[in-house]
């Protein structure tokens, strides 16, 4: 038994030094390669699902399910008032396609990191990071709902859809990023 286990370890150590492994699985893609791939899969998404890629709309449903699990109700909210939204809420997250796509992003990144043998749990280092995560998260969540999307749904998908809203989002987001950078350097570094 021990011998077998040892052989297995040796096999994966050999993989680790294999040239193709290093080239294709270990090393990062270039930014341009990733950009081309993202664009291709964005087009695939529109062709196959009838809608462009979106991420943050799903988070509103996650919030609603959590809120309902702790006893709240969102039935009276305008945002969830449409029959479609009600049906999605009633069906639950296990039946929600967007939920599985978002969880898929997490799992895809997790698997890619492990396959590259580069996984490490990164603990929170300081109180500043906690404050930054809370404030930043809240601002992204609220902003994405008011602007009808995030960097994916409103920006990437908006611009790809030849919508003026995508460009307006881009300009406003850029200035937000400048202000955010100033705040980051001043308070969170």
């Amino acid at each position: 038994m021990e011998n077998k286990a040892e052989k297995k370890v040796k096999f994966f150590d050999r993989v680790k030094n294999n040239d193709y492994y290093i080239k294709w699985i270990k090393s990062p893609f270039t930014y341009v390669a990733a950009a081309v791939l993202l664009a291709i899969f964005q087009i695939v998404t529109l062709a196959a699902t009838g809608n462009p890629w979106g991420v943050s709309g799903v988070f509103a449903y996650w919030g609603a399910w959590i809120y309902e699990a702790v006893g709240g109700t969102v039935d009276k909210w305008f945002y969830f008032a449409s029959p479609g939204a009600q049906a999605t809420l009633d069906a639950g997250f296990m039946e929600h396609a967007g939920t599985w796509r978002n969880i898929g992003i997490i799992f895809g990144a997790l698997a890619a990191t492990f396959l590259a043998s580069g996984f490490k749990i990164k603990k929170i280092k300081s109180k500043k990071q906690i404050v930054a995560a809370i404030i930043g998260g809240l601002m992204m969540g609220y902003g994405a709902r008011i602007a009808a999307g995030c960097n994916i749904g409103a920006l990437f998908s908006g611009i790809a859809s030849l919508s003026l809203s995508g460009w307006v989002f881009a300009v406003a987001m850029f200035f937000g990023a400048v202000v955010g950078s100033k705040l980051l350097v001043k308070f969170f570094m």
Partner: peptide
């Protein structure tokens, strides 16, 4: 659109990740 995107821009820089980047980094640990 302007207001939402602006505060989204601030938030993503402070939090160190946008919507897709946050999910990806959750997967990275």
């Amino acid at each position: 659109t302007v207001f939402g995107a602006f505060i989204f821009g601030i938030g993503m820089v402070i939090a160190g990740g946008c919507a897709s980047g946050t999910l990806m980094r959750v997967g990275e640990g």
